[in-house]
Design a binder for these strands. Sequence first.
DNA 1: CTAATTGCAAAAGCTTTGCAGCGCA
DNA 2: TGCGCTGCAAAGCTTTTGCAATTAG
Lengths: 140, 140
Amino acid sequence: MDNHDLRKAGLKVTLPRIKILQILETAEQHHMSAEDVFKKLLSSDGDVGLATVYRVLTQFESAGLVTRHNFEGGHSVFELNQGEHHDHIVCSCCGLVKEFYDDIIEEQQKHVAKKAGFEMIDHSLTIYGLCQTCANENSG
Amino acid sequence: MDNHDLRKAGLKVTLPRIKILQILETAEQHHMSAEDVFKKLLSSDGDVGLATVYRVLTQFESAGLVTRHNFEGGHSVFELNQGEHHDHIVCSCCGLVKEFYDDIIEEQQKHVAKKAGFEMIDHSLTIYGLCQTCANENSG
DNA sequence: CTAATTGCAAAAGCTTTGCAGCGCA
DNA sequence: TGCGCTGCAAAGCTTTTGCAATTAG
């Protein structure tokens, strides 16, 4: 239940926040830029400002509801926090994002951080490549 | 020899390019933003525009002389391509950047990409954490 | 009722681009 | 000599902020 998540985060349950949460939940591609979310809002109703989208997404990030990623390309993308941690593999051609989780890599990172004398807080691993579709198009 | 690298990249050997290359080579912290490079230029002579710094760095990137990273924080940082590939561990507190290379992680990434049906082009692994200095300050 | 929230518009970064003049090859 | 390169200033993009009106609790 959305409203519960919002309240738990200390945020008032307002229409923009509910809508944005729903968009993030139901989006087929759940890595969205602020602009993406804004466009979806426009087509659904058209009463939420872009500034609000940014504010809400930032609040959601602080509340731990979403994660912000800085993939290549200058703008941030946001993703709903559901399920376990994972990393990303992004198609450089079409922008497709797939998620993956690899135990060996996770373990090895802790190891590396310790060896470097760091207390690991977080990490961001993104593999860039060509998805099958794009690879076929380019070769054929 | 700098000039040789430039010519090899099909770039004319001009003063701004030589200077920027030297700055990247001799910088103690060799992950620099365009602004960082620009400031160094100002203190050395003061005749290179910020726009030129961006242009030259972008050209260097295309030529494979430098790599552009999108760490957290909105702006790009550039790093001279010398020696082997490596990943980064960044201090969230003071911004210190350390490099590391881990064979197991490298291998495992190839594996993951293949399993996801991607042709791997590149990858970017950044661990965020607290360096020893910052960890001590925060605990003490 | 009160403080949080919103929309709009304006501003603030970082980065790119247009253009006239300068410099390398 | 010619084209590439440069500096400056202006524009472009994403993101943030100020403010008056609105709304949740």
